[in-house]
Simulated assay, not measured.
Amino acid sequence: MHDIGWTHVALTTRDLDRSAEFYERYGGMHRIHERDDPETGGRVAWMTDARRAFVLVIIQLAGDPGRLSGLTHLGVGCESRDHVDAQCERARREGRVVEGPRDSGYPVGYWAFIRDPDGNNLELSFGQEIGTVLASRSE
């Protein structure tokens, strides 16, 4: 069986372990694959929440990594508004940049951005009804 459709998003980083720890802590992900890449000379890790065949690929490279900034971001759904609030508070205590939380109503929901160690935005949200919107389109 081969994976078809969306399989991954890749980000570059200066420090793979620091980035992987961030996505473990704030994105609920864990590493399922890690290797040295002889083509780039960097390290690579695949991170997943194990809910679907989709991974975040983190590639450690020398130099300045690109950034998901402004409104560009990765999004993770959370189990409650309280979880979003708790993660934002934790991030603030750690000195991370946090925007929000905000409630944008249906179908966007309650969300906040937390900046990762390389300046990328991770959106934590509750109530983003992507599954509901998708199901309504396929009926």
Rank of each mutant, 00 (worst) to 15 (best):
V44C: 06
M29W: 01
I4Y: 14
L68I: 06
C78G: 05
Y23P: 00
L68D: 07
A20H: 03
R25N: 03
A45W: 08
T7I: 10
V44Q: 08
M1S: 13
A62V: 03
R35N: 12
L122D: 09
G28T: 02
D3L: 04
L56E: 11
S80M: 13
I4T: 01
P65A: 13
L68G: 07
F22S: 08
C78Q: 15
N120M: 00
G75V: 00
D15M: 00
S104F: 03
R92S: 07
Y110M: 12
R90E: 06
S80G: 14
Q87A: 14
F22M: 05
L134V: 05
E39A: 11
R35T: 13
D64I: 13
T12Q: 08
D37S: 11
P117D: 10
D36R: 01
E34M: 04
G95K: 07
W111I: 15
L56V: 14
G63N: 11
G42H: 01
G109N: 01
L16F: 06
A91C: 10
Y106T: 15
D103A: 01
N121D: 12
A86G: 08
H83L: 04
D85S: 09
G27H: 07
Q87E: 06
F22K: 07
R18W: 09
R93L: 12
S136Y: 00
C88P: 03
T40P: 02
E21V: 03
D118C: 04
W46L: 12
G109I: 04
I4V: 13
V44F: 09
A135G: 15
R81H: 13
A53V: 09
T40E: 03
S104Q: 11
F126S: 01
A45H: 09
Q128V: 15
D64C: 11
L71C: 12
C78T: 11
R51D: 05
G42N: 09
G41R: 05
Y26N: 07
M1V: 01
R96E: 11
I130W: 04
T13C: 06
D82M: 01
F22V: 04
R52P: 11
E89L: 02
F113L: 04
L122A: 09
G27K: 13
H30W: 07
A91E: 05
E34S: 08
C78Y: 13
C88Y: 08
D103R: 15
G27F: 03
V55T: 13
D85F: 10
R93I: 10
R18L: 14
G127F: 00
G119E: 05
G63E: 04
R35I: 00
E24A: 10
G105K: 08
N121H: 11
T132I: 02
S136L: 02
G127L: 02
R18S: 12
L11C: 04
V84T: 11
